[in-house]
C-alpha cells in the first residue's frame, strides 16, 4: 500500500497543497496529469528524493517521510530508465544485491531469472550505450525488481518508446506487477495508458490529486 496524507510541498512558484491519496495493496494505480503538473515531484516525494514540508507518507505499515530513499523498500523506474552508464546489464540488475552483499551464486541466479523473464538475457554483457529504449526500460525494471521491493514507482516508463514497443512494455509491466504481487504507481500524461493498465486511476491538477472513477 502507498498512502499520502495531507502532503504540502513547494519549490519556487510550484506547490502541492494538501495532497492525499492511497493506492491499495497489490493494485496497479495510474496517475495522470499534464506536463509540469508535478507528477514527477510526487514520485520523488514517495522515493525520498524530496522531502515534504508537511504531511505523512506510508509504504505498507511504515511511515517513511523521514527515512532515506535506501530504507523505503521501493523500486523506482524513471522515464528514460536512467541506467548506470559504465555498468553492464548484469551489473545493473545485480546492483541492489551487490549492495546487500548477497552471495555471488544467489546474485547470478536472481539476475539470470529476471533477465529471462524480462527478455534481456541476451544483453547481460552489454553496456547501456546502443541499447534501444524498450531494452533500457526492461533493464531498469529488472534492476528495480532485484531488491524485492514492496512498491514499484514508474515515472512515465512508456513515454519515450515507439508504439509497438510501448504495447510490449505495457503488457510486461502489468504481468510483472501481478506476478510479484506489487503495489504499483505509474505516472503518465496518457489516458490510453491509464485505461489499459489501471486498477485505480488518479488525476493530478492544480496541485491536488483526485481519484477518477470509471466513466468520469
Amino acid at each position: 500500500m502507498i498512502r499520502l496524507e495531507n502532503i504540502f510541498w513547494s519549490a519556487g512558484e510550484f506547490s502541492l497543497r494538501d495532497v492525499s491519496f492511497s493506492v491499495p495493496e497489490a493494485k496497479y494505480a495510474v496517475m495522470m496529469g499534464k506536463t509540469g503538473s508535478g507528477k514527477t515531484s510526487i514520485v520523488e516525494l514517495i522515493c525520498g528524493l524530496r522531502w515534504p514540508d508537511r504531511g505523512r507518507i506510508w509504504i505498507g505499515d511504515d511511515e517513511v517521510q523521514y527515512l532515506p530513499p535506501a530504507r523505503r523498500g521501493l523500486g523506482y523506474v524513471p522515464q528514460d530508465g536512467a541506467l548506470f552508464p559504465t555498468m553492464t546489464v548484469r551489473e545493473q540488475i545485480g546492483f541492489a544485491l551487490r549492495l546487500r552483499k548477497r552471495p555471488e551464486k544467489e546474485k547470478e541466479s536472481v539476475v539470470g531469472e529476471l533477465a529471462e523473464q524480462l527478455g534481456v538475457d541476451h544483453l547481460l554483457d552489454r553496456k547501456p550505450a546502443g541499447l534501444s529504449g524498450g531494452e533500457k526500460q526492461r533493464i531498469a525494471l529488472g534492476r528495480a525488481l532485484a531488491a524485492h521491493p514492496k512498491v514499484l514507482l514508474l515515472d512515465e516508463p512508456l513515454s519515450a518508446l515507439d508504439e509497438d514497443t510501448r504495447d510490449d512494455v505495457a503488457d510486461l509491466l502489468k504481468s510483472i506487477q501481478r506476478e510479484h504481487n506489487l503495489t504499483a504507481l505509474h505516472i503518465t500524461h496518457s489516458g490510453t495508458e491509464a485505461e489499459r493498465l489501471a486498477d485505480v486511476k488518479f488525476r493530478l491538477e492544480d496541485g491536488q490529486v483526485n481519484e477518477v472513477r470509471d466513466g468520469e
Binding site: C47, A70, P78, A82, F95, L99, A140, R143
Partner: peptide
C-alpha cells in the same frame, strides 16, 4: 551527467556518498 542514475542507486540501497 544526469543525476537520475545516482538517485536510482539511492533508492536501491546506497547513501548519497556511495
Amino acid at each position: 551527467l544526469s543525476s537520475r542514475p545516482e538517485e536510482v542507486a539511492m533508492t536501491l540501497g546506497c547513501s548519497r556518498g556511495w
